[in-house]
Design a protein around this nucleic acid. Structure first.
Lengths: 249, 249
DNA sequence: CACCCCCCTTGACGGGGATCAAGCGGCCCG
DNA sequence: CGGGCCGCTTGATCCCCGTCAAGGGGGGTG
């Protein structure tokens, strides 16, 4: 595990938070920039922030001030209804942007909680808007990031609105595998950072159903599961499950 | 019904598309601007476009070029899955912005269809971005509009993921009533522009269930329904339904 | 104005997934 | 290293809502 010491802000820290040096920058930032353009973006991140597993980056209702880029780790976003029930609205991994829900009302609507020890880059929103006005590639990129979040959410709506439990879970696994692949991890073997309950909340089903379906997928030779460890044996088969049952209904 | 004639673009047309003269501008545009600032925004809308009931403003897969503000009428957005099944992802009325799904991939992901004869203001996206860079209030406003769409979608995810059918339908009616009120229509009496099937798709249930629940709400004295005509008798009761059953599960 | 199609309503029945319950095992903490 | 708690699995049962089916009515069209 990484050391947790936080040096005082100085040249060292500035270097450490430089986007131009970051291996994740093609996930967070516009691509195809030259060195001087990249340098422009180095003022975007004010600081980094570590979040321990179980701790929250921000809570629903809290004032909004910044966006966050996940540097490493894993997060869930949750919405809490009036009576205190919790709905998981998304999972986020390295290179993804958090906090965009807060822009609309200057107040976060959801809570972001780390599912493992994590670190984020803090991007004060005023700075994002300032830089966007003077630097067109950033503006364009930022708009795309916002739009993709909308598209992602609509995909989940389709999942929840028109698919059966087994289709949803298969789609979830395929999606997870694809996002991990894009980050250089194995596409076929990974560790779930979230509980069955959290998966179930996200997919609109109960934890028992998630567990049963994992077992069924294993019987069918699609995956191997042991607790949080998952190995995908037949990705094409999983994709077939997402499409197939749609015809059935 | 309005006349459908479209004069050639000239001073008359320019006046007709002027946001500064539009009664809906506080729904689409930033508020608190002075006259000269408002004038700046008059170049945002290139033209208007009428869409007949049943026709589509754009289709999923089509190249993205502009955002649209609903001037009057009513739209649904739909997502089509691989096998051709259709999921309704939203309903839009006067003053709301369409097309933001297309920014991320320069291509629309959903289809927007008019549910009654409608008209939209066309805002070429290049112009939106240009003006946003030079005019901060527009930039801020545009970001808020994008963010609110994200928040709205997450609300639907909560609806679909954690509420029962009767709660979803009650929440839908309450939401509709609120949005109509904000537009100066009656909060308690309105005509549904969409079919039971479309409501059901949006809310993740079958049209028969929608119909049955409408009948049940009527028996319970919450609403009066005759086909597409709805009168809300007990809005507090409806709100109680959305919250109440959450405790039950 | 009348026809016809589409939409809505209502009933009967069945199944997918929720609920209730019990037991196991991994992992964290002391 | 040992105990305990939390998360996972699996079974039995129930019920909400989907499915299938039939009939009625409203509104748009010719």
């Amino acid at each position: 595990m990484r050391t947790m010491n936080e040096p005082a802000l100085g040249t060292l820290a500035r270097l450490r938070t430089a986007c131009s040096q970051c291996s994740l920058r093609e996930l967070c930032l516009p691509v195809g920039l030259d060195a001087s353009e990249l340098a422009t973006l180095d003022t975007l991140v004010s600081t980094r922030r570590k979040v321990r597993r179980g701790d929250s980056l921000f809570y629903g209702g809290e004032p909004f001030s910044a966006l966050y880029a996940v540097r490493f780790g894993f997060f869930k976003s949750t919405l809490t209804s009036g009576d205190g029930r919790e709905q998981v609205t998304g999972f986020y991994m390295a290179g993804e942007i958090l906090g965009m829900d807060g822009i609309g009302a200057d107040r976060h609507t959801c809570t972001l909680t780390a599912l493992e020890d994590s670190e984020v880059c803090v991007m004060p929103f005023a700075r994002v808007e300032d830089l966007s006005r003077s630097f067109e590639p950033l503006q364009r990129h930022f708009h795309k990031v916002l739009s993709r979040e909308i598209v992602r959410d609509q995909g989940v709506m389709m999942l929840l609105g028109s698919m059966r439990a087994e289709e949803r879970l298969a789609a979830f696994l395929v999606n997870l595998s694809q996002r991990l692949t894009a980050r250089g991890f194995s596409a076929s073997e990974f560790v779930l950072r979230m509980t069955r309950d959290e998966i179930g909340s996200y997919l609109g089903m109960k934890l028992e159903t998630v567990s049963r379906l994992f077992s069924r997928f294993q019987e069918d030779g699609l995956i191997e599961v042991h607790q949080k460890h998952v190995r995908i044996l037949d990705i094409a088969g999983l994709k077939r499950v997402t499409a197939q049952a749609q015809n059935a209904s």
